[in-house]
Design a protein around this nucleic acid. Structure first.
Lengths: 252, 252
DNA sequence: GAAGATCGTTGATCAAAATCAGAAATCAAG
DNA sequence: CTTGATTTCTGATTTTGATCAACGATCTTC
C-alpha cells in the first residue's frame, strides 16, 4: 500500500482574494490585480499555538501581522514581572504598527488560543504602498483607526466606573465578533479575568464580581469563559454618556 | 504724511525650510526640493487666540494641523457638557490624524493660548506622499508615534496611582519642552488643574493636592501655573516600573 | 477700581474598588 | 485516577481618591 500523502499545514493557504476578511483587512478598496501584488508579499505560516509570541518588546520591527483566525493579545511587561494588556485582537486586525516609529516593537504580542497569522514584511509593504494609491489610503485608514480606538479606550479609562468599563468591553467584543460573522450574544472569552482586568485597569476580583453582578441583574449568563448576553439593551444602558466610545466601538 | 504701511500678520510666514521644527515635524528626512513641494501646500494663517477651535468633533476631515507655537488641547465632549481631555500638543506635533479613518474628526481641538498653526489639506498631502517615499515613511512614523503615545498613556491610566500619573505628566512635559529648546525644569502650565485632572483621570482637587504634596517633598516649587522642578531624580523615582511609559515619554 | 466670574487650595466625609484571604472549580500531567 | 497548578468566586477589610463645601486669590469687564 502506498504511503498516505502528508499535507503540510503551511501549504493550506488562503490567498487574500478568497479570504473572508478582505472587507476589513488591508486589501479593502483594492483592484483585483493590486490584491495579487499584495498577496505576493504576504507570508502565511502554520498557526501559532496558545501562548506563542508573534513578537516581543524591543525586537527589531520588520513585519506587521494580521490575525486571520484566533485571538492575540498585546501587552507590555514591567520589570517586576507584571504585565499590562494593551489590546485584544480579533481576525482582520493588524498588529505591530506601533513599531514603525522607533524601528522596534514597543509591546509584545502573543496568541491567546491557536491562531492563524499573516505576516507582511514592512519594507516590502511600504514599497508597494507607494505604487498603489488605494493601498496607501487604506494604510492611513488603518493607522488612523488604531489611534481612534486608543482614544476611545483612554476616554473609558480616564473616567467611568468599573461597571461601565466591563460593559463597554463586552459590547466592544460583541460588536466586533458580530461584524466578523459570529454571534453577537454568545461567545467564549479567550482571555482570563486577570487579563480583562489588566486591560480595563481593574483588579481581577472586581471583574469576577461584576460578571456575577451582571448575571444577577439578568443582563447575561456566565460560566467561566462562556458568556451569553441576555439583555443587550440593558448593557448599552450602562454606558452613561460614552458617545465617542460607543460610536467607535461599533466601527471596527 | 504718507500712511503707515500695514503689515498683515498672515504675511509673516516662515517656510518649512527655515522653521526650527523641521527636525521633528513632517519635513524630517526630506530632500530640499521635496520640502519645497510640501511647503507649497502648507497654509499658514494668523495665530489663533486662546479658546479658538482648530476643528470640532464631527466636522468633515479635510486638513491635518501642526502646532508651530503655543499649546493645543484635544478633547471629547459628553452630552452632559463635561469634557475629557485626550491630549496636550506642543510645537511640532501633528493633530487631526485620527480623522482619516471615518472622514470626520472624532475629537475637538482648541488653543490653550495664542498659537500659530500650520494647516495641511489632507488630499493634497496624500497625493504628495505617494510621490515622495521619504514623506510616506515620515507619515507612517508620525501615525505610529501617535499610536505609541496612546499606548503609553493607556498603560499609565489602566493602573498606577494618582501620584504616579501626575509625575509622569510633569516629566513628559519637561522632556518635550526640553527637546524643543525650552527649559526642562521651569515652565508655565498652559492648562488648568481641571484639564490636567481630566487628562489623567483624576479630580481637580486631587491634582491640586498633589502639587502641594510634591512641593512639601521638595520635588518642585509651584505657584498656580508656574512650575519649577527642583528634584528631577525624585520625580523620576515616583514612576515605579513604568518602563514603556518613560521610554516613550522621552521620544517625541 | 469695583463686581463678578473663574481658578486654586484646603478640609471633612464618603464610596468605590483594591487588597488580603481562603474555598471551590477546572485543567494539565503523570 | 490522582495530584498539583491555575483560575474563578466570594467574603472581610482597608485604602485611595472622589465628592461636597467653603474660602481666598486672580483675572476680566465694565
Amino acid at each position: 500500500m502506498a504511503p498516505h500523502k502528508v499535507i503540510t499545514l503551511n501549504k493550506i493557504q488562503i490567498a487574500c482574494q478568497s479570504c473572508g476578511l478582505s472587507n476589513i483587512c488591508l486589501p479593502l478598496g483594492l483592484e483585483s490585480d493590486d490584491i495579487e501584488r499584495l498577496d505576493a508579499i504576504v507570508q502565511r505560516n502554520r498557526p501559532l499555538r496558545r501562548g506563542a509570541h508573534l513578537f516581543q518588546t524591543g525586537e527589531k520591527f520588520r513585519k506587521v501581522f494580521v490575525v486571520k483566525t484566533g485571538t492575540v493579545k498585546t501587552y507590555t511587561q514591567c520589570p517586576d514581572g507584571s504585565e499590562r494588556v494593551i489590546g485584544f485582537h480579533l481576525p482582520g486586525e493588524v498588529i505591530g504598527l506601533d513599531g514603525i516609529e522607533l524601528g522596534k516593537y514597543i509591546c509584545s504580542a502573543k496568541a491567546l488560543e491557536t491562531s492563524a497569522i499573516c505576516e507582511i514584511p514592512f519594507d516590502q509593504l511600504e514599497k508597494l504602498t507607494a505604487s498603489i494609491p488605494n493601498l496607501q489610503h487604506q494604510m492611513f485608514r488603518l493607522l488612523s483607526r488604531e489611534i481612534s480606538n486608543d482614544t476611545s479606550l483612554m476616554a473609558l479609562l480616564s473616567k467611568s466606573t468599573a461597571e461601565e468599563r466591563l460593559a463597554a468591553f463586552l459590547l466592544s467584543l460583541s460588536i466586533r465578533l458580530h461584524s466578523r460573522g459570529f454571534s453577537a450574544t454568545e461567545f467564549n472569552l479567550s482571555m482570563s479575568r486577570q487579563e480583562i482586568g489588566s486591560y480595563l485597569g481593574l483588579a481581577l476580583e472586581t471583574v469576577s464580581r461584576l460578571f456575577t453582578h451582571f448575571q444577577e441583574e439578568g443582563i447575561l449568563r456566565v460560566n467561566r469563559k462562556y458568556v451569553e448576553i441576555l439583555d443587550l439593551e440593558k448593557l448599552y444602558g450602562l454606558l452613561s454618556q460614552q458617545t465617542v466610545c460607543l460610536e467607535r466601538l461599533r466601527a471596527p
